[in-house]
Design a protein around this nucleic acid. Structure first.
Length: 113
DNA sequence: AAGGTGACAGTTT
DNA sequence: TAAACTGCCACCT
């Protein structure tokens, strides 16, 4: 049987698979887990990701516009952007440039391997 | 126990 | 085109 706690772990599992220099959206993850429409839950899972081990690269998850909406939930509001730029993701005005190219869909997990 | 909140997203004005 | 409204569901007070 699955519980809501498992949903969190599944979200974290997916986020851990995001390659460096790539980003994805809350909605994409929610849809991949069969929880389409519940993208808010993904955000909530991210909020609790600080307790997850191994660590979850939450900075690679942005909203559908490529906007760094969750930056305020990191210790430093700039940490998220700095981390992304360190991976080669250009962020302009809190938004990922070339979001269409940087975007990574969890569905790629099925193709890879 | 009940109501309000939110790291979103899709639809409608 | 941009702004506002509604749906979604678990968590917090």
């Amino acid at each position: 049987m699955k519980s809501h706690a498992d949903f969190y772990e599944q979200v974290w599992e997916v986020v851990r698979q995001i390659p460096e220099g790539r980003v994805t959206s809350y909605g994409a993850i929610a849809r991949f887990l069969g929880a389409a429409g519940s993208s808010r839950l993904v955000g909530y899972a991210m909020n609790a990701s600080h307790t997850a081990t191994p660590a979850v690269p939450a900075h690679r998850v942005v909203n559908r516009n490529g906007l760094l909406t969750g930056r305020h939930h990191f210790g430093d509001p700039d940490f998220m952007q700095q981390r992304l730029e360190a991976e080669g993701v250009v962020v302009i005005d809190l938004q990922v440039r070339d979001f269409g190219e940087k975007f990574w869909s969890p569905e790629e997990l099925l193709e890879a391997v």
